[in-house]
């Protein structure tokens, strides 16, 4: 690994200014993604700004009936096992529990999981691709089996975070430390498409820090679930994933929110789809027909067309599971 200085601020303010003062600095939480990037020479930061000494960032605060606030430094293992999260925010607990391995979840944080860089072969390899400031997306005409089917141009990554997909379905807000203040941004607005900037996955500017995620408590009677489809049973990234929060009433969906992973360069949701869930009758045939009508605008690359039936089927399955 290349050499770096390890800076240990005690407050967000210090962390923010260290990020601004030091050229080539990287925010460092659990480090599971950062170390991979450094070891593989994808990035070579001269300064790591460790966030783990900052008090309060690893806390979970639940306000019954209203919301839960999860500090950015909370370990995934603690989210997966948290009694309130497993009960009322099930989709997030399931997503957190699906990430990598026990060893990873013990160290990795939710903030790091949200802000991790893509897993695209070319981005992670020694290709000076568009995401690293080059001119090309090597995947577009290369090995693109795992790449996106919507929102790609000009870079066809998928966003790798499981927790972010769950948070999007839960309509979470991200609290960002910026210029000595905290501001709230919706999960949808936090992530950006390559057409906005192909070298970044989110809106964070240098000096800005993801401080926590704030999740409104789903309506009473809602159920939620995360289905992560992997090629291997476990310890793998999602090929496609679906997160859903659904409230059923009298054989119909009263309210629903769906988010998708593995289909787009950011955690994906479709407004029209979420709206049309309301009033959807939950008979299997009906749900099947509904699912078939999604992703009609997808434009797959040469090797990822299979993701269209896959995502439709996963949508169908999660809706059936949540409404039986």
């Amino acid at each position: 690994m290349n050499s770096f200085k390890y800076l240990q601020p005690k407050s967000l303010q210090d962390a923010g200014s260290l990020m601004q003062q030091n050229k080539n600095a990287l925010l460092f939480a659990g480090g599971t993604d950062a170390l991979g990037l450094i070891k593989n020479n994808i990035i070579s930061p001269e300064n790591l700004v460790n966030l783990k000494q900052i008090k309060g960032l690893n806390e979970i605060k639940y306000t019954p009936g209203k919301e839960i606030k999860i500090g950015a430094l909370v370990n995934l293992v603690d989210i997966a096992a948290h009694p309130v999260i497993t009960e009322k925010f099930t989709v997030l607990a399931e997503a957190a529990n699906s990430i990598a391995s026990p060893q990873f979840r013990n160290v990795a944080t939710i903030g790091g999981n949200i802000c991790q860089r893509p897993r695209c072969f070319y981005f992670r390899g020694d290709f000076h691709c568009i995401r690293k400031g080059g001119d090309l997306c090597y995947a577009a005409a290369g090995e693109n089996k795992y790449h996106c089917i919507v929102g790609g141009d000009p870079c066809y990554i998928i966003h790798p975070s499981d927790s972010a997909v769950a948070l999007l379905a839960l309509d979470a807000k991200f609290s960002i430390y910026s210029d000595k203040k905290l501001k709230l941004v919706s999960a949808w607005d936090f992530f950006i498409l390559p057409s906005v900037d192909p070298t970044r996955e989110n809106i964070l500017k240098p000096g800005e820090i993801l401080e926590s995620v704030v999740i409104p408590e789903p309506d009473k009677g809602s159920k939620s679930r995360y289905i992560k489809f992997m090629e291997r049973e476990v310890f793998d990234f999602a090929v496609v994933s679906v997160a859903a929060v659904v409230k059923k009433s009298e054989g119909k969906i009263a309210k629903g929110s769906i988010a998708f992973g593995g289909v787009a360069p950011k955690p994906w949701h479709i407004d029209a789809l979420n709206k049309s869930l309301t009033g959807l009758s939950t008979e299997e045939e009906n749900i099947t027909e509904f699912s078939k009508k999604t992703f009609t605008d997808a434009s797959p690359l040469e090797k990822n067309g299979y993701k269209i039936p896959l995502v439709r089927n996963l949508l169908k399955r999660i809706l059936i599971d949540l409404t039986v």
Partner: peptide, 12 residues
Amino acid sequence: RILDANTGKVLN
């Protein structure tokens, strides 16, 4: 093993 036909490099 995934070999990129365009660049001759192994991707995984």
